[in-house]
């Protein structure tokens, strides 16, 4: 990745939140990050309303069969380069729902079907605490 692309990605990343079949738990913890106790907006991390504005996708939940085309479409729409964060045990490896008949697979598998070079970061936990999410995002962006 070129210097300028990396620079653009690292400084105040704007995130888009995609729920692909989560139980709301990781979602409320993501929203929790934005509220006064953790307040990630002071670092420039902002939740945006469209994937076209986003530097990073926060994907929660093991991908269900019905959510699979939607997630791929959202990834296609996101401005590249873009980091995909698989947040929570379900997004990392389908978690407890792995044997379900309606599960299309974990997030990395689904994203790599359409873009083999996608950058994917994992934040495990059920649900990960807001501190873990912030730490995960910082670590991933540093490693770029």
């Amino acid at each position: 990745m070129s210097f300028w692309k990396k620079f653009g990605l690292k400084k105040s990343p704007w995130v888009f939140h995609v729920n692909t079949g989560a139980c709301n738990n990781c979602d409320i913890e993501i929203v929790d990050c934005l509220t006064p106790r953790f307040d990630v907006e002071r670092f420039g991390v902002k939740l945006v309303g469209s994937p076209r504005h986003a530097d990073a996708l926060l994907v929660t939940g093991g991908v269900t069969a019905q959510a699979l085309p939607r997630l791929q479409e959202v990834y296609r729409q996101a401005a590249k380069p873009c980091v995909v964060f698989a947040i929570g045990a379900c997004a990392c490896d389908s978690g407890i729902f792995m044997p379900g008949y309606h599960m299309a697979g974990p997030v990395d598998k689904v994203i790599k079907e359409i873009d083999p070079n996608a950058i994917i970061a994992y934040v495990p936990g059920c649900p990960p605490k807001p501190e873990a999410m912030i730490s995960g995002i910082v670590t991933a962006l540093k490693a770029l």
Binding site: T20, G21, T64, Q66, I96, H102
Partner: peptide
């Protein structure tokens, strides 16, 4: 239907002691 994970079916494959962990999710 986007969030359907087939919990009832998975629940039938788990033991009574394991089900509460699934159900809380």
């Amino acid at each position: 239907g986007y969030n359907h994970r087939g919990i009832e079916k998975i629940s039938e494959t788990l033991q009574f002691d394991q089900v509460p962990y699934l159900i809380s999710r």
